[in-house]
């Protein structure tokens, strides 16, 4: 009993981020397997035979099984892995920086159509450049004003594709 508890304790002590990812992979495999009947349409059957060589469910099911098997093996292997997660050494300020840029990216994408590519790009590029620590007006001007103009012109004039125009444009 004491040995069993000690062994269980040592296994728990050896759990790491790889173990957590491995379990997530197993769960993902099970979820995919359960979703297959509801999320994969069946091809029509003619004269009792399928019209295609393999069922569209085959690959998702194989992938699901693969995830469960590989996830289980990965979990066992993870107990002897000694990798250090790259998130461990990150400072609080790094998380703040990442959060700020992520919010900026999402806002950029959300406002792209209503405000147009040029206006949003100028705003985001200037803001990130400034947030990153640049106080050089020439540098910020080149990044925040000239670069979006050049990219917009490149795509719309030279490559003849459309980017959302100015909000007041056609």
């Amino acid at each position: 009993m004491t040995n069993d508890m000690a062994r269980a304790g040592s296994v728990l002590a050896r759990l790491n981020f790889n173990s957590a990812v491995a379990l997530a992979v197993v769960v993902l495999g099970i979820v995919i397997w359960l979703l297959v009947p509801y999320q994969v349409a069946e091809p029509p059957v003619f004269f009792g035979r399928s019209s295609v060589g393999i069922s569209p469910k085959l690959f998702p099911q194989m992938i699901a099984i693969g995830m469960v098997v590989i996830g289980a093996l990965y979990f066992i292997a993870s107990l002897s892995m000694r990798q250090i997660s790259g998130f461990r050494g990150l400072s609080a300020s790094a998380y703040v920086n990442l959060g700020v840029v992520l919010i900026a990216m999402l806002a950029y994408v959300a406002l792209l159509r209503p405000l147009g590519y040029l206006a949003t790009s100028m705003g985001v590029a200037t803001a990130i450049s400034f947030y990153y620590g640049s106080r050089n007006l020439v540098g910020i001007g080149l990044t925040g004003i000239a670069a979006p103009l050049v990219i917009y012109t490149l795509f719309t004039r030279y490559l003849s594709v459309s980017l959302p125009p100015f909000p007041w444009g056609s």
């Binding site: 990216m105 950029y108 994408v109 792209l112 590519y117 790009s121 985001v124 590029a125 200037t126 990130i128 450049s129 990153y132 620590g133 640049s134 540098g139 080149l142 990044t143 925040g144 670069a147 979006p148 990219i151 917009y152 795509f155 980017l163």
Partner: peptide, 16 residues
């Protein structure tokens, strides 16, 4: 070259 200029450049190019 400072990444303060390269990072926003990469982003606006990637989005465009």
């Amino acid at each position: 070259i400072s990444k303060a200029y390269l990072v926003p450049l990469m982003l606006i190019f990637a989005v465009g």
